[in-house]
Structures are given as C-alpha cells and as structure tokens.
Simulated scan of single mutants.
Amino acid sequence: MSEDEDLDALRAAVRGLLGATPEANAWARLCGEVGVASLAVPSRYGGTGAGLPEVCVVLEELGRTLTPCPMLGSAVLAAAALLGTHDDDSCARLLPGIAAGSTTAALVWAGRDGQWDPAAPACHWDGRLHGEAHYVLDGAAAEVFVVAARTDGGVRLFEVDPADTRRTGSTPLDATRPLATVALDGCPARPLGTAADQTAALAHVRDVGCVALAAEQLGTAAHCLDTTVAYTKQRVQFGRPIAHFQALQHRMADLHVLVETARSTVWAAAEAAGTVGAGAPTGAAGPTGAGGPELPLLAGVAKVHCTEVARRAAAEMVQLHGGIAITWEHEAHRYFKRAHGGAQLLGQPHEHINRLAALVL
C-alpha cells in the first residue's frame, strides 16, 4: 500500500476500535491490537519506528473521542525525551515497556506558571533533584518519571522513580486529561545521556509535542464541526431545519475552512518532523528523526492555529446547539473544556507567537 493508504488504514483501525470499546479498556486494546504506543519508538527498542504522521493520525482520533489515555504524555513526550538523551542503555531498558503500553512514563517539566521553556525547567539539580513541577501528564499513574532540571552545566534530563517523589493528582478543567503535581525534595536521580546541556533536545521534544497536541486539537475541532452540522439538520425552527438558514450556513462554512487549514498546518509540521525522537544513538537502526530546520517554525504555527480553531469550533458547537449544549448531559461542555485546557499545554498561543516572531524577524 501507499503511505496515504497506510495512514487511512491506521485511522480506520483506531476509529473503529474507539467506537466499539469502553473508555476503560481502550488503551489496552489500542496498544495490544493496533500498537499505537509503539509508533514513536524505533524498532531496536521494541517499537515500530513509524513517523510523526502516524502518531498524529492516532492523536487526531483520540481528540475526536476525548478518550483518556497516556498517548501524548507517555508514548510521545516521554519517549521523545528519552530518545533525545542518546542514552542507549536507558532507552533499551525503558522504551520497550512504553512501546508495549505496559509502562507509563511522564515528562516532569513545567512550573506553576505553566512555562514549558526548554532553558528554564521548574526543577534543579545539585547532586539531587529539588523543585515542584505542575501539569504533569499522567503523572499520578506513571511508573517512570523523566525530569528536566537545571544544572551548573545547563539543562539535563534525569530518570526518577516516582516512589521517591511526592505526587498529587490535580483537578483540571478538563477531567479527561489526567494531570499531577510532582514535588522533588532532595530526590535521587539517574542522569540520562552524557551531554552537558540537553536544552536543544528538550526544545525538540516541545516541537514534537506541539505537533502531536495540534493533531489532537484538530480532531476535537473536526468532531465539534461534524456534530454541529448534523444537529442543524435535525433541529427545526419556523418549520424548517436551521441548516437551511443562510447565516448559519456561512458560520459552518467558515468553520469548515478553519478546520481544513488546521489540518494543513498539522500535516506540514508532521512531515517536517519525520520521526519523533531527536535522534537515535549512533549506529541505531532506522531514521534518526532529528527534524528539519523548519520544524520549530511549523510546530509553532500548528500549535497556535489549532488552539484557536479548537476553541472556535467548541464555542460554535455550544452556541449552535442552543440550550441543550449547556446541560451536563450533553457532550459539548467536555469539548469546550478540552479546547481551553489544551490551549495551556506546552505554551500558550501568545508565547509561541513571540517565539515565531523571533524565528522569522
């Protein structure tokens, strides 16, 4: 099959499984039957060595259903961080479990202010780890922490046993996105890799994460649009379906254009990135996936645009559904919360706009 046919087959498999499986069982089936957690992991570490486009297909479908699972936090962010350390021994020890979905890893990075700055993580290292990180994806259930910390020589990544930390599950705006706060008080840790400064590797992790998150936001926006269009064909006012009203047709047409432009930004960035890791260790089989020089720009564009499209689509879903959309029983509030919660992850839009300005000016 061609690459497009392969992606379509993956999309159909994930969509079909999510549509037929209760949320509680979805992650086990996605990993066991489709192998979604292995997509970002090179074959030498038990993965399939696929590219970011395949990862984005999965996340787009997860964004449509809001299925709680550690795809973004463990199989993308933590896996990319491990690969970026070029630590072959640690990758060989940790990545097979992540690829199988049997181990959940979490990247511990941002502080209370929600800044995912590669040069200024929340924690620091002086022979032990200190600090408090917030908004840790799947942090309450993770078996492995990958902690970004400041050191005298720059930013380094460390492996930490969650049992040596104090972690507390958060009460997020979006209940379908498990977050945690992780406190490290003189915590023992194992440095990953030998590079004195891994800021560039962490910046690449942020770029990859932004593209993956943008794909999820695209799925959320597409579902909001599809659901809203279907509802306007059913709801009758003045003796006709409201889909016949020209003003609403214009609004839905505008939203369709926004969703399709969001799709373009996601795929441009995903293809620029190639694979997820910031480079495999020397001699590793398969592509290194360092990403082209255009990736930081395209990842920022995708994050900014898809954030705004998801928020717009969720708002239109609420407004065009009318009173039913503000009831607890309707799904609209879940998508509204996901759209606004996702906007805060990996940097708010205005932060990426500032970064984009620095890249192009």
Rank of each mutant, 00 (worst) to 15 (best):
V155N: 02
P121R: 08
A119K: 12
P70L: 05
L72S: 01
I98H: 00
D138E: 15
H86N: 11
D138N: 14
V146A: 06
G131S: 08
A142Y: 12
A140F: 06
H134D: 13
V136M: 02
G154D: 01
G63H: 08
L107K: 01
P96L: 03
G139F: 03
P68V: 09
E143R: 15
A79Y: 00
L137T: 03
A110T: 13
H86W: 13
L77Y: 09
D113K: 14
A142T: 09
G114F: 09
A80H: 11
R93V: 09
P172D: 05
A148M: 12
R167V: 05
R64P: 00
G153I: 01
Y135W: 15
G111L: 08
T103W: 10
L94G: 02
A100S: 15
V144M: 11
D152F: 08
L83I: 07
S90K: 12
A105V: 00
A120H: 12
L94E: 11
S74K: 04
A80F: 04
A79L: 10
D164P: 01
E159Y: 11
F158C: 08
D89W: 02
D87R: 10
C69P: 03
A163G: 15
H134T: 11
L137S: 15
D117K: 07
V147L: 10
A140Y: 07
D117H: 13
R150M: 13
A120V: 13
H130P: 06
P68G: 08
A78P: 06
H134R: 09
V160F: 05
L83R: 10
H134L: 07
T151R: 10
E143H: 11
L94T: 10
S74L: 03
L157T: 05
V108Y: 03
T171E: 13
D117I: 09
D161F: 08
R64M: 07
D113L: 14
G154K: 00
R167T: 03
G169H: 12
T85P: 02
A175N: 11
C69Q: 07
A148I: 09
C123N: 11
G154Q: 01
V147Q: 06
L137I: 00
H134M: 05
G111K: 10
G111Y: 05
A122D: 07
L94M: 12
C91F: 00
D126T: 15
G131M: 10
G139K: 04
E159G: 07
V160T: 01
T103M: 12
A92F: 07
L66S: 05
L72V: 09
A92E: 11
V144I: 15
T171S: 14
A106D: 01
S170T: 14
A80L: 11
S74M: 08
T65N: 00
L107S: 06
A148R: 10
